[in-house]
Design a protein around this nucleic acid. Structure first.
Lengths: 339, 339
DNA sequence: ATGAAAGCGCTAACAC
DNA sequence: GTGTTAGCGCTTTCAT
């Protein structure tokens, strides 16, 4: 049997209460006693049991990253990974513990957010991969449990959000393309119901308007954020219209941009000589894919880091701002030609 | 305040003991009582608290995925993600709960494996990203806590391992290349101390021997599994020797194969016309990178799934075989030319 | 088939 | 500055 607080107390010749106080940094313990207790704890390899702490105290600070869509096998992305890394890095640097749980949209219907937190004694959570239709979105609004949503803005007393200014970012990259004298744009849309897609679309329209390009003239290809779908739609368009289709494909994700570029190649054209292509996301693998696609880098890892930080602040009651916009950056590479 | 077992007991007019038994599927509860209790639990939105369960019972089945190297920001890979997905999928399908924790090599020195499990009341763990030099490797051998290591074989009563037959896989791909009449091979080595690299090297040598190729004649480039390093070393070699360097680069990872291919291109050569290249891993992004590199697919997601399954079995005491070799497959693409 | 009660490891309020 | 003790929510004997 492993050492418990009792063993430490016994060995140190003090009460368990004193051990608890000594180890938790209370000031009303003599330095001498504290030192002795710490030494003995170390000797015994004593580690406080989190479950017991959770039960007895209301001031625990267990946080979790709850990821929806972690179980979906569909599309590969390294978002979740980067996000986890970012969040864990923050927590690690601040000596906080964090664990990741996967909760599918289905699971959310069965067990609410509060129930989940209660079940695992969580005092706060990072929510990632939530869809606007997910049950938790509703749940967290009705709840008082601190949480931070990533990529989706939710209002609430104890709710923070970490987002990218998708609208502005997409306007930026669209403007970038227009600045290189492209006028016949083709938009490769993401998932219909996705909030981010809507925001990016808004930015797109804004840029067009500013430059007097009629949105009606822009062909829109639905990709559902899937590479193969972008590929098919692009191929179809190219087979039908060839270079008359337009001069540049503006994509709502890097993955779909890959599909588009592949279709362009397979139809016998070149990027960027015949068609220009832009992406969005800045996924890490983008650097390996030729031609290297010009894109918006979302800085996902930083997003994770900021999410962790924000939750920490909310938990401590000193979150001045509840919405953090993580700066994006235009990653200029070689997929856009100047006309 | 949320509903506890007491509330349910009170509402149902029974004792807490009965509620506990009813909800945990004990047979010595009348169906009538059980039904009533279940209904009331549902009404109240009652969710058993895991911490309390952990404290009071020794039969808890909390498992965790403990990933070393999750905090490293270095190289991006989608291994960990695929592995997590696989493991979570298994757990999800079998109604088990799992959480992921990140433990750096440094952390392992501070707190041992047993202590960690005790701290979080874990009854078993999946270990991923362990290096042979990591403290936990030693720890798990001295421990009786069930665990499964991925990609590293550890012997022990309660230890399972899920691996790829790296030696055979690497021999296979080497033979594949030789079968296409390549004789002047160049090996791009992984990380010096990595066990997997050693095994792959062994397979490489085996293939050479079988085909009477002298290992002494094969230039070896150290990549440390890093793309840029593979790039630099390749460039250096090509600048010095040009096509005399050899006809094919056999790489110990896909990432390094990307670096090699990039260097080849930058030196004005083409893949596979001037140089052939092979990878290893089967990372999901491989399908987007041109030229598409022929490689060994490790089926990482299945590895995660198998790891979850194996741990489950060990926990239940019915693991017949403690080492699971997940089948790999040769992914033939277009980076190897037949001479 | 069910109730009563001890106890898991710890914290926090209170007493001294 | 330190000891004592009542819980936290649950499981699990032991009675009945």
């Amino acid at each position: 049997m492993a050492a418990s607080i009792k063993d430490v107390a016994k060995m140190a010749g003090v009460s368990v209460g004193t051990v608890s106080r000594a180890l938790n940094g209370y000031t009303d313990v003599s330095e001498k006693t504290r030192k002795k207790i710490k030494d003995i704890s170390a000797d015994l390899g004593y580690t406080p049991n989190v479950s017991a702490k959770n039960l007895s105290s209301k001031n625990n600070k267990n946080v979790a990253m709850i990821a929806s869509g972690l179980l979906d096998e569909k599309q590969t992305d390294d978002f979740t990974m980067a996000l986890i890394k970012g969040a864990y890095t923050y927590m690690n640097r601040h000596q906080l513990s964090i664990a990741t749980y996967a909760i599918s949209s289905e699971d959310q219907k069965v067990k609410g957010f509060e129930e989940f937190c209660r079940e695992f004694s969580l005092s706060g959570a990072l929510l990632f991969g939530l869809k606007v239709t997910d049950k938790y979105v509703e749940n967290i609004c009705d709840s008082k449990i601190p949480c931070v949503t990533v990529d989706i803005r939710v209002e609430g007393e104890q709710i923070g959000s970490v987002i990218t200014d998708d609208e502005r970012a997409f306007e930026e990259i669209t403007q970038y393309v227009i600045d290189r004298n492209h006028r016949k744009l083709i938009l490769v849309y993401g998932r219909k119901q996705a909030m981010v897609a809507k925001l990016r679309y808004r930015g797109f329209c804004k840029a067009l308007k500013k430059n007097n390009i009629n949105i009606k003239d822009v062909p829109v290809l639905d990709s559902n954020f899937i590479e193969t779908q972008a590929y098919e739609k692009t191929k179809e368009l190219l087979l039908k219209k060839g270079q008359d289709a337009g001069s540049v494909f503006i994509c709502m994700s890097d993955i779909t941009a890959f599909g588009v570029a592949r279709a362009i190649r397979d139809c016998g054209y070149r990027v960027p000589e015949d068609f220009s292509v832009t992406g969005y996301d800045g996924i890490s693998f983008g650097r390996y894919v030729e031609p290297r696609i010009t894109t918006i880098d979302q800085n996902v890892m930083q997003k994770g880091y900021e999410a962790g930080k924000l939750l920490d602040r909310i938990l401590k009651g000193n979150a001045t701002e509840k919405t953090v916009i993580v700066p994006h950056s235009l990653l200029e590479r070689e997929s856009v030609r100047r006309l």
